[in-house]
């Protein structure tokens, strides 16, 4: 049965690709619409909690400290670089230079890993040093719980996307190494690129909302 399916699915079947793009690309775009709505829900919650009278929201620079924001700004830069690297992967693959493509893919993955480790460091620092009230109910100082809560849920959900993206890219890298992903499979890389750029874009939104405004 699987063999029969494969024979149908391998080439463009009858009537396939009415829009001139692969199914995978449409699938990824529609998935991204859905994912964007998930973030929209979380950001809407953030906005409602923050811009409500009497929310007493701290100014981000005061809450994170100047160093904290600069570190994250650097992190943003890393993620954008990683996104640029992903563009190069596709460019080299289309030219048939799989070796360079692999190199850029490694750069993309490393960028994602650096982002994750800096974020991990930031979380540890915030939880252990900056916001002790999270685990100490007797903590007396004035603080805003929603600030921390929305921070964790927004950056955490985004961090999960980055982690998934790193795994996704690693799988493609392994495919390239074993020769399963060749210069013909540009759409595979293009779809992974769509996801990766989307994650980047979302981060710019999250960064702007949570850290800058």
């Amino acid at each position: 049965m699987a063999a029969q399916n494969a024979s149908v699915m391998a080439g463009p079947g009858p009537g396939e690709e009415s829009l001139g793009v692969t199914n995978g690309k449409i699938g990824m775009w529609t998935f991204l619409v859905m994912d964007a709505m998930t973030f929209a829900g979380l950001l809407a919650g953030y906005a409602r909690l923050r811009w409500t009278p009497g929310s007493d929201w701290p100014f981000p620079i005061e809450a994170f400290g100047v160093v904290g924001i600069q570190l994250t700004a650097f992190n943003t830069f890393v993620l954008i670089c990683s996104s640029v690297a992903m563009v190069h992967v596709l460019a080299y693959q289309m030219r048939g230079n799989m070796k360079a493509a692999q190199g850029w893919m490694i750069a993309t993955i490393v960028g994602g890993l650096i982002f994750l480790s800096i974020q991990g460091f930031e979380w540890t620092h915030l939880i252990l040093d900056k916001w002790p009230f999270l685990f100490d109910s007797g903590y007396e100082a004035k603080y805003n719980l929603n600030f921390a809560a929305t921070f964790f849920i927004l950056t955490g959900f985004h961090g999960m996307h980055v982690a998934i993206g790193v795994i996704y890219n690693t799988i493609i890298l392994m495919g390239m190494r074993s020769g399963k992903v060749t210069e013909e499979h540009t759409s595979t890389v293009e779809i992974a690129g769509l996801y990766w750029h989307f994650v980047d874009l979302i981060w710019i939104l999250v960064f702007t909302f949570v850290y800058l405004i």
Partner: peptide
């Protein structure tokens, strides 16, 4: 479904 369900997901996550 695509545009509405994820909003429920985000609410349920919170």
């Amino acid at each position: 479904i695509l545009a509405a369900t994820p909003v429920l997901t985000s609410a349920l996550l919170m």
